[in-house]
């Protein structure tokens, strides 16, 4: 998809995120909105998958390690045909395949259930190890939050991925600077992310995670890198990106908009479509 198409697609994904969380009455809009360009670009232009055959041997693996951003993943999966867009209305409701956090047993296309932070990253590395041993060309991608980096196993995984030279593994950090209790810096600083991972033996790039050109180039760089190292994209983003009152705050980390806020959000997202 070209940049123009991607831009439109990202806007549409943002609308679906806000709509589905509003409809559910709860959920996590902030971190979903910050990852839109990162994940839309991945699914549109890089990740190999077949919604009709989600377990295909030739697929690349994507793992949403920050599982609370399920509305982001579900919105994109709906577009890609894993399930009807209509089904987004069932988000978080009793009996739905669209659980509050991705459930691999309920929804085809989810590689592993996530929701407990830090775990998806390690599982992704394990998949990468297995593929590498089997000399397969499939790639593994994982999306993490910046707050998520505080979990200790993240660093165990970082160490092991480098030790095993998992150059088929690309981790993306949605560095939106906020977690639940406030800014990452005030709660438990994680910077400098890039240097930390570099010192752990990773190949790293830092980009603006809302700049489609930079996002595209970062994935290209992963696919063409020959360093023999696992690859990290540190993406500087805005939590809540696209909805003014959700931006740059922890307030909408895990809260649905009120009816008035919803109206306002949709106007903001609609106007930009013109």
């Amino acid at each position: 998809m070209d940049r123009n198409g991607l831009e439109k697609q990202c806007l549409e994904v943002r609308r679906l995120i806000v709509k589905s969380v509003y409809e559910a009455g709860s959920g996590h809009p902030g971190g979903s909105l910050s990852g839109v360009e990162l994940l839309t670009t991945l699914f549109e232009n890089f990740l190999k998958f077949d919604p009709k055959n989600p377990k295909s041997d030739s697929r690349d693996y994507f793992i949403l390690s920050k599982g609370h951003c399920a509305p982001l993943l579900y919105s994109i999966m709906a577009f890609k045909g894993y399930f009807p867009v209509e089904e987004l209305k069932t988000l978080r409701k009793l009996g739905s395949r669209l659980q509050g956090h991705p459930d691999a047993l309920k929804l085809p296309g989810i590689e592993v259930s996530t929701g407990s932070l830090g775990q998806g990253f390690g599982v992704a590395a394990g998949i990468a190890l297995s593929l590498k041993i089997d000399k397969k060309v499939n790639k593994v991608y994982a999306l993490l939050g910046d707050g998520e980096l505080q979990e200790g196993t993240v660093w165990e995984t970082a160490m092991a991925a480098s030790h095993f030279k998992l150059d088929n593994f690309c981790a993306v950090i949605d560095s939106n600077k906020f977690q639940i209790d406030g800014s990452v810096e005030t709660v438990m600083g994680v910077e400098p992310i890039k240097q930390k991972f570099e010192s752990f033996g990773w190949e790293c790039v830092q980009i603006n995670g809302h700049d489609l050109k930079q996002v595209d180039e970062a994935y290209q760089a992963f696919l063409s890198h020959k360093s023999g190292k696992p690859f990290l994209i540190v993406a500087d983003t805005l939590k809540g990106k696209g909805v003014s009152f959700m931006e740059n705050t922890e307030k909408f980390h895990g809260k649905a908009p009120s009816p008035e806020e919803f109206e306002k959000a949709m106007i903001e997202l609609g106007e930009k479509a013109l």
Binding site: L117, G118, G147, E148, Q150, E151, G152, Q179, I180, D181, V187, M188
Partner: peptide
């Protein structure tokens, strides 16, 4: 607390006694 002080409500203690409340992050 581990980044859930608003939910666990230990934030009330934090507001009164910031020196004796420790947010350990998601850890």
């Amino acid at each position: 607390d581990a980044d859930l002080s608003g939910s666990t409500r230990t934030v009330l203690f934090k507001n009164q006694f910031p020196d004796r409340h420790f947010n350990m992050g998601i850890a």
